[in-house]
Design a protein around this nucleic acid. Structure first.
Lengths: 131, 131
DNA sequence: TGCTGATATCCATGCACGTCAATATTGACG
DNA sequence: CGTCAATATTGACGTGCATGGATATCAGCA
């Protein structure tokens, strides 16, 4: 059971209320993930051989028109969840691990607040990562 | 075989492509977080004294009408991110840590796919927190 | 019972967004 | 150059959603 200290640098949700601007930025990212097609796109790209997938791989995975896939890819790219690289005629997309890790850390271990006698023992929250 | 084992139990995004139904369910939750107001609500509730906040605390924190706050609370409750409990005239909301942890695990350490080279150099999960 | 404050529901409005057809752009190959 | 395949952009359409006003429900209190 190794513990990960999460709260030292980044600000998980429970640390303090998000500012309006932070919330706005994060909400944009979560909204990008708030579509089944985009979520599957991220998943497909992340799990694809070599950590990247071309648009043709994606259009083949959905029953959607090509412009629709392209639109979703743009949304994911705009919020920094994906990057693209053109090689020959094909464009390859890959996820940005740092962005996902950022979101993961934000949601991690939301203060298992033991209300009451928590005399300052709250800090140093930890995510328990498997054992 | 795989170089970075992140979570043996849960299924990170990079493990395998999400099914349509899983994606649909998760997307609903992410969509709920994909609004600045709702994100701040979750944050305020999570960081509030005792891990709970009543609606009056929230309406006071926003420049929005009370029905709007109530609507957002319902959305967050419907996806299981919040629970509510009525005490006297007030209704208190609190976050559901398991739900946040679930999302956190899903996004955690999405395979820093270093194809080939580093053979098992990285043990355990590695959400890079801070530097 | 009636009154007041706290919260939820209903309804309407305006805007954001997912989707696709048509078209444009880009690169490879003659 | 022209043609073809892969991808992106544009424009339009229909639906979904955030917001707030009016109103209903609920709990405490006189």
């Amino acid at each position: 059971m190794n513990m990960l200290k999460v709260l030292d640098c980044c600000s998980p949700l429970a640390r303090e209320p998000l500012g309006e601007d932070q919330a706005a930025g994060l909400a944009r990212t979560f909204k990008a993930l708030g579509d089944p097609v985009r979520l599957r796109i991220v998943s497909i790209v992340a799990s694809h051989q070599g950590g990247e997938a071309c648009v043709c791989d994606l259009t083949a995975s959905f029953d959607l028109a090509q412009p629709t896939i392209s639109h979703h890819l743009k949304v994911l790219k705009d919020v920094g969840l994906l990057t693209s690289e053109r090689r020959a005629s094909w464009v390859y997309y890959r996820v940005v691990p740092e962005r996902l890790a950022e979101l993961s850390a934000l949601l991690a271990a939301p203060a298992v607040v033991d209300d009451g006698a928590t005399d300052g023992a709250v800090d140093g929250a930890a995510v328990e990562v498997d054992g």
